[in-house]
Design a protein around this nucleic acid. Structure first.
Length: 263
DNA sequence: ATGGTGGCGCGGCCA
């Protein structure tokens, strides 16, 4: 057994911000109001030299990040020290910045931006499924070393029918196709728990809505932003919810934050 | 309906 976690209770959140440059003020506002101890960001779309370190430090957070120009990019903001940082999904070199891991307050945090996959059968879809299999292998290795572990981020897969506004319309489509759901189930089967589903939740609760066709107003969304905790960490989970407020703001990200509390 | 909206960056790609 490892030593007991150092920090006690921890609030952990994830948010695909779709450009940190555009969304910085919203991120700082969210950090101030929700006050997460750890905030995992995806789609920062910033090279590391442009990361807003000063603004984030002024808000009381440390930051590590792995970015690139225009696309992708992940970051971890934390109140406490971030140790053992890695920026590469093991298995094959990949210029796409989609993985960021660090240990904070005794919890191993793995922030992921799973590929979108474009459409079923496309080259990007094959890349997505391959990436998810490499992710499964990487998580298995991390779990062997870190019993207190969370994998969170934009998985670009809705796990179940109840995570989709219209499962019949989405059946077989990218983000809800059976091979993607199977790849996600294989990851969860390592011994992880989708902590959102460990608590009673409202019906039709989603984390992403397309910008087009008033999808948010009509609640035509998907739950594709997930917080997956190991057995030992899930046992400490006291709450998980989706915060829709940022999606209602002017110029929002198409995703909204998911927040989990651990005792 | 191969549309539609948004970000990046200034044409076309990506989501």
């Amino acid at each position: 057994m490892q030593a007991a976690p150092a920090g006690g209770s921890v609030r952990i959140a994830t948010w695909n911000v779709n450009s940190l440059k555009v969304r910085l003020a919203q991120v700082l506002q969210f950090a101030a109001s929700a006050s997460p101890d750890v905030l995992a960001l995806q789609e920062t779309k910033l090279t590391d030299d442009r990361f807003p370190v000063a603004e984030i430090e002024a808000a009381g957070y440390r930051a590590v990040f792995s970015g690139q120009k225009t696309y992708n990019g992940v970051a971890l903001l934390a109140r406490e020290e971030l140790q053992g940082v890695t920026t590469e999904l093991p298995g094959a070199p990949d210029p796409q910045r989609r993985w960021l891991a660090a240990t904070v307050s005794g919890v191993r945090i793995i922030d992921v931006y799973v590929p979108n996959g474009e459409s079923v059968g496309s080259e990007k879809y094959a890349y997505k499924l391959g990436w998810m299999e490499r992710l499964r292998e990487a998580i298995a290795a991390e779990l062997a070393r870190h019993p207190q572990l969370v994998v969170l981020g934009d998985f670009n897969v809705a796990p179940e029918a109840r995570d989709v506004h219209d499962p019949k319309e989405w059946e077989g489509q990218v983000l809800f196709s059976e091979p993607e759901r199977e790849a996600l189930r294989r990851i969860v089967a390592l011994g992880l728990h989708d902590v959102f589903r460990r608590f009673e939740q409202p019906e039709k609760e989603f984390s992403w809505w397309d910008y087009r066709m008033n999808a948010f107003k009509r609640n035509r969304g998907l739950r594709i932003d997930l917080i997956l905790a190991s057995d030992a960490l899930a046992a400490r989970c006291t709450a998980c919810h989706i915060d829709k407020q940022p999606r209602r703001q002017e110029r929002p990200s198409d995703h909204t934050p998911v927040i989990a509390d651990f005792a």
